[in-house]
Computed example of a mutant assay.
Amino acid sequence: MPSPISRKALVTGSSGFIGYHLCKRLLADGWQVVGIDALTDYYDVRLKTRRQGELLQNRGFQTVTERIETPGALDRLFTDHRPDAVIHLAAQAGVRYSIENPESYVNANLVGTFRVLEAARAVPPAHLLLASTSSVYGASAEMPYAETAKSDTQMSFYAATKKANEAMAHSYAHLFGLPTTMFRFFTVYGPWGRPDMALFKFTKAILEGAPIDIYNHGDMARDFTYVDDLVDGIVRLINVAPVRPGNAEEIAEGDSLSPVAPWRVVNIGNSEPVQLMDFIAAIEDAIGKPAIRNMMDMQPGDVPATWADADLLHRLTGYTPQTKVADGVARFVSWYRDFYDV
Rank of each mutant, 00 (worst) to 15 (best):
T323W: 04
P102L: 08
G254A: 02
A210C: 13
D232A: 14
T323D: 09
P242R: 02
R115C: 13
D44K: 04
G209I: 07
I206F: 07
R331E: 15
P191E: 06
P321A: 05
I287E: 06
L199W: 02
Y215S: 12
R76Y: 13
P125L: 08
P321D: 01
Y20S: 02
F224E: 01
L74Q: 11
S171L: 12
L27Q: 05
G233K: 01
L39F: 10
K163D: 03
S14W: 00
R331Q: 13
V86Q: 01
I99K: 14
L55T: 06
P262S: 10
S135M: 13
G246K: 10
G288N: 11
A90C: 08
V240R: 15
L117V: 13
A248V: 15
D44T: 03
K48V: 03
T320G: 03
W307K: 04
A160T: 14
W192A: 00
I99M: 14
R7W: 10
D302I: 00
S256W: 10
V240E: 10
H88Y: 06
G30D: 02
E249L: 10
K150F: 09
M168V: 02
Q62H: 11
I99S: 12
A119I: 15
T40F: 07
E100K: 13
L230D: 00
R293W: 04
M155A: 10
T306L: 02
S156V: 08
I212V: 14
P144S: 11
Y319Q: 09
R315D: 08
A241I: 06
R184Y: 03
M197K: 12
G233V: 07
R82D: 08
A308Q: 08
L117Y: 12
R121V: 06
R96Q: 14
I206R: 03
R264A: 11
L312Y: 03
G72R: 07
K162N: 04
M197F: 14
A326C: 07
G190A: 09
L39D: 04
L47V: 06
V325L: 14
G328F: 05
N107W: 10
R96T: 15
G301Y: 11
L230F: 00
R194M: 06
Q322A: 15
D297E: 13
N101S: 15
R46I: 07
A28G: 14
G53M: 03
R25T: 02
G177S: 12
Q92S: 11
R67L: 13
W31E: 04
H127A: 12
A241E: 12
P144R: 11
A308H: 07
G60P: 03
L110R: 01
D223W: 02
A159N: 02
W335E: 04
D75G: 15
R315C: 10
R67P: 01
A122M: 15
R293Y: 08
V240H: 11
F183E: 05
M168Y: 12
K289I: 05
W192M: 02
Q62F: 07
A173Y: 06
F183N: 05
R293C: 08
E253K: 09
F224H: 06
M182K: 08
N109R: 06
T12C: 05
W307D: 11
P245E: 09
I280C: 04
A141C: 12
T323S: 10
P304Q: 08
W335N: 03
L89S: 00
W263E: 01
A164R: 00
V188F: 03
G233N: 05
A305L: 09
D41K: 09
D196L: 11
G301I: 13
L89R: 00
